[in-house]
Structure formats: structure tokens, C-alpha cells
Design a protein around this nucleic acid. Structure first.
Lengths: 314, 314
DNA sequence: CCTTATTATGCTCTGGATGAGTATAATAAG
DNA sequence: CTTATTATACTCATCCAGAGCATAATAAGG
């Protein structure tokens, strides 16, 4: 605090060498399924070193992703920067700072795209998809094991505390399900040794993780952070449109929102909200893809972005 | 994307050396004035190198701040990570990544505390304080200069666009003032060369900055980010209490919220909101400090934090 | 003692947003 | 020509936030 301000920075003698990584949570939502780009057989998020040549972190990520996927990145947002010591397995000499980003892209690349591949994010978080009601895995597996974990606590008040946190995260004991608590839920499961990563890291003997696809390192945690951020963001900023094709029906838009939120919404109310906010305009075209009455096609009104501080959906 | 996952990370050969800085936006709000800790005669935010010895970024910042200020840090939140090339003046050889944090502390240090000193954040952003109505600086200086700037644009649609953005940021042309747009407003003024930093960086000849205290580098921008984050956060998380003494009256609490938001709130509605959310409990004591009917003293109910996903104020 | 200023606190009214339901229109498929 | 499916228009009740009115409790000044 004394002598190092941001600008008249002295020469960095005495500082340790640190390298920086970019990690991306890349999201697409083709026909109402929320996909995330993974590598290494769906065990890791795409990442790469931050090169000195880049103008900024943001542009470094954008260049790198567009080069790799061949698709433009619609929206980029920084998620979080990690430098925890236990992140890199055991190398102490050189420390890695990981800067994670959320990126939205309009479509998944058509051509095969190994080595990266798109996965539904609910493979990693099966308890997060409530579009067809609360998944059975919650009542059947998660709740009993969390109760067990709470009972395992020493003192009375710690037991109470664990139970309260579990109930509020997973919405039992007449608590309401809150779709935004993705990270809290993952962290709770981690703390209770109910995800594979926790068993692996802590070396706890009896592994009884909740069935779900795990990732290496803390990548699943980063993914949880990205999903949580996106679920809150769509409520007050019109970012869903970054995932939509140029023209779409209102039902397609609704399906995309539902895919992200993991919840269904009331159709009529959804339309009322969208239209009264002037987020979209008719193209004049109709779509009759899936049987039933043909739907009007809409496009996003880009003008709203600088018209006012714009609200999102739902 | 091909071969660098987060975990089986190969040795960092070929990567360039990078060093990391922590920058803190430290906020206190003694008797209803929002203060930020500065150094170097209020031209910079406190910052320091990130050492390898620290367990994590967060704990590194906490250790460092508590050691420097002698006061515990109630709440810490990461703001943003910068690595723009133009941040460090001209040294290209070694690049600095700056990780900025928002920290809330309960009181300003009693003893003198040079070299750091607390300043009202409205010295840096005089246009942000609307507690006594919209400041004159907006109508008298900012709006005309922004109109001038918009008129200076080449094409018609660019002129329109600039005007729309200005009106939405500063709430003129019957637009509503939105206290959360702190960063947008600063960036707009920067773009229009109306803050000293822009004149300095771009070397634009005629300097006609809006009167306000500037900072070195992009520190004022970081401060704007912190204020904006805090103004949104108090609406859905009970973080104001991190700035309050253990016991306080409801009016003191209201004054703190108003100081942060830069707005006045309806007293009765504020109290209704606080009490119906069970955020506070009576201590049984009364305070008769300032004349008038004595007020009940309250304390924050820490239990609410794990009871449920808790809302904030306003 | 009485008036005034100041603050705390209780209560009401109103408009808008939100959640949820009902009804009707337009198409395809059998 | 019936059924299934989707789009789209209304309606209704509830909740909440903004705003105002009224009253209680104190200090200070005449």
C-alpha cells in the first residue's frame, strides 16, 4: 500500500514469475438444449496460455476461440480469476493464474470439431434440469445423502446449519427451488464429498458420489460459475439473443430461455414480457416447421441496446 | 484448445513471465458518507504485488489490507482482472496483470493513517451524488458538453447514437436517472474527453474536463467499477451491514444505503422493507443522540445469512 | 407551561407487475 | 371432419413498491 500504485510502478524486481491461463465456458443453445464446449473427452474446459502479444485479455480470448471454433463469439464476460495454490497439482515454483470467461456463441460448429466437443451441460449437473419437474436424482439420492452428511456433524448447531444450507440450496423442507444457486449446490456437494472431484482431492476413502459427469481440476466448478452467471444475467439483460439465430419464433426463444434456466415458464406471460419490452420485431415471415398453427418470425431489435438500460427475460 | 487443460498442465516452457498486482477498492461509510481508501494524495488506489506465499488471491488481499489498515475486512469480492497492454506505461518486456477487489470495512482507522487516506468517493464522481437532487454540474456542464460531443460526430446515425447513449446514462431527455450506471457514465465521459485521464492518455489538445478529482492510470475506472458493483449488490444482498457498527438505528442504516446509492429513499417504505425481511432485531436499547424522538437500536440478524437466499435493501 | 422543530413509527391507497387460467384461431395429419 | 398441436388474445387475482397522511415522543426556546 505504501509505494506501489498502479501507474508509477517500479521495475518488477523481486517478483516471482507467474504465468496466466485463459479458461472458457463456451455456451450454445441449438434447438433448446444448453451445450458447453469441452475437450479431452468431456473432462475439461478449453483453455490456453495468455500470450503477451494480445492487446487485452478479452481480445486474447476472442482471437483464440474464433480461431479454434471458426465461429464468431457473440458475447464475452469475465467470470473469475483463480490463483489458489492447490490448483496446479504440485508445482510450487511457478504459479498459474487462471482467468475464466463466459462466452456465448450463436451455433455450434457444423463440421465434426474434434478435438473439442459440445455436451449438454446437464450431463455435468443432472440435478439442475427442472424443465420436466424436479429430477428424481434429487429426492432419491441427493437429499438422503445430504441428510446423512448433516447428521454426521459433531455439534447440534453444526447439524442444523448443514441442514439449513442443504435445504435452501436444493429446495426441500418446503423451501423454494432457486435456479440461480448452481454454484452453491455444487460447492455443497463438494463439501459433502458427493462429487467425484471432492473424493479425488481429499482422498476420502468411501467414494459415493452422486452420479454425474465429473471434470478434471476445478473445471466443473468453473462451469457451475458460468451457468450461475448466465442464469442471473438473462433476467436483467437481453443476452439470450446472442444464442439465437437471426430469425426465430417466440417459442424457440422461450425454449432457449428454459434450457438455460432449467425451468419452464408460462407461455402467455413470457410473450407478454418480451413484446411489452420491445425486445423483438416481426420480420413479416412465418415459420411452419413443426405442425400446428404457423408462428411469426421475429428478429432482435438491436436498437434497444443503446436506447435504455434494458431488462431481460423473466 | 487442443492440449492445455486446466489440470494436466505441461511445464510452462515458452510462456512469458507475467507478474500480478492486487488493487483494492476499500469502502467505509461512517455517518452516512461513502469513503474510499486512497494513497499518493488521493491519486491512486492502494495496490501491491501478489506474492507466491499466499494461499489464494482472496486471502492474499485480506492479509495485506488488514496488516496495512489495522482493521478487519468484512466482505471481499473480486471485481475484475485487467491486462491491457496500455496499462503499464511503456514496459513491454514484462506484463502486469491487475486483479481488482472490492472490500467493505466497518470503520475507518482511527489513528492518522498516512500514507493512505480516506476520501469521499463523490470527490471523484461529483455527478453521482443525487441525495440533494440532481447535482448542478450535470445540467450546467455535462449535458451541454455531451451534446457538443454528439454534434461533433460525422454521420447522422452516429450523432443519434451518441445522444441516445448520453441521455440514457445521465438521465436527460425525460429519461430516468439510474444510479447503477456508474461505469457507463465514466466511460462515456472518457470517450468524450471530458475527464482528465482521457485528455492525458489521448493527448487531445484542448483540455476541458468536467471538474472532478482524477486518478493515475485507470484507477478511477476501477473505482467506478467498484461503486457500480456495490450499488447493484445492496439491492439483493444484505451487504450494507458490513459497513455498519454492531448496533445502529434504522435511520443510520438508511443513511448508509442512501450514501452508497447516491439517492434518498422513502423512510417508511425503507423500514417496512427491512423489517418484513427480518434482517434486523431490536437490542432493547434506545439512542437519543440527535434530538427528536429516541430511536430503537437494532443489530443485524446474522442467522438470516444461511436461512435462505436473502434479499437486500431497496 | 406552551409552542415549535425534529425524529420515529403506524397505517392506507393506488398502480403496475406478475402468476395463472380461459378462450379462440390456424394449421397438419389421420 | 375429427384430433392434435401450436399461436395468440383476454381476464382475473395477488403481491409489492411508491407515495402520502397521521400520530407519538423527545429537545429547545419562549
Amino acid at each position: 500500500m505504501r509505494d506501489t500504485s498502479g501507474v508509477s510502478r517500479e521495475s518488477p524486481a523481486g517478483r516471482h514469475a507467474i504465468s496466466a491461463d485463459l479458461i472458457a465456458v463456451l455456451v450454445a443453445a441449438p434447438n433448446g438444449s444448453p451445450m458447453v464446449l469441452t475437450i479431452k473427452n468431456a473432462t475439461a474446459l478449453p483453455s490456453g496460455p495468455f500470450e503477451l502479444g494480445h492487446r487485452s485479455l478479452q481480445s486474447g480470448l476472442r482471437d483464440w476461440v474464433e480461431q479454434q471454433t471458426g465461429h464468431p463469439l457473440g458475447y464475452i464476460e469475465q467470470l473469475y480469476t483463480f490463483a489458489d495454490r492447490d490448483r496446479s497439482s504440485d508445482e510450487m515454483a511457478n504459479r498459474v493464474i487462471s482467468i475464466s470467461y463466459l462466452g456465448l456463441t450463436r451455433e455450434e460448429p457444423a463440421h465434426g470439431t474434434p478435438p473439442g466437443s459440445w455436451r449438454s451441460w446437464y450431463e455435468f449437473f443432472p440435478w439442475e434440469d427442472h424443465r420436466a419437474g424436479a429430477p428424481e436424482i434429487i429426492q432419491d439420492i441427493i437429499v438422503p445423502r445430504l441428510r446423512q452428511w448433516a447428521d454426521g456433524a459433531g455439534q447440534q448447531d453444526m447439524r442444523q446449519n448443514r441442514l439449513r444450507r442443504a435445504a435452501s440450496a436444493f429446495g426441500f423442507d418446503d423451501r423454494q427451488w432457486n435456479e440461480e444457486l448452481v454454484l452453491q449446490r455444487y460447492e455443497l456437494l463438494y463439501e459433502a464429498d458427493l462429487v467425484e472431484e471432492a473424493v479425488r482431492a481429499k482422498g476420502t476413502g468411501e467414494a459415493s458420489a452422486v452420479p454425474s459427469r465429473s471434470m478434471s481440476g476445478d473445471h466443473r466448478r468453473i462451469l457451475a460459475t458460468g451457468i450461475a452467471r448466465l442464469r442471473t444475467k438473462i433476467k436483467y439483460r437481453p443476452v439470450v439473443f446472442e444464442l439465437m439465430p437471426p430469425e426465430f419464433t417466440l417459442l424457440q426463444l422461450q425454449r432457449a430461455v428454459e434450457a438455460l434456466a432449467g425451468l419452464t415458464v408460462h407461455k402467455q406471460n413470457f410473450r407478454r414480457l418480451i413484446e411489452q419490452q420491445d425486445l423483438v420485431e416481426e420480420t413479416g415471415q412465418m415459420s411452419s416447421d413443426t405442425g400446428g398453427r404457423p408462428a411469426k418470425l421475429f428478429r432482435f431489435r438491436h436498437a434497444v441496446l443503446d436506447e435504455r438500460t434494458v431488462a431481460g427475460t423473466k
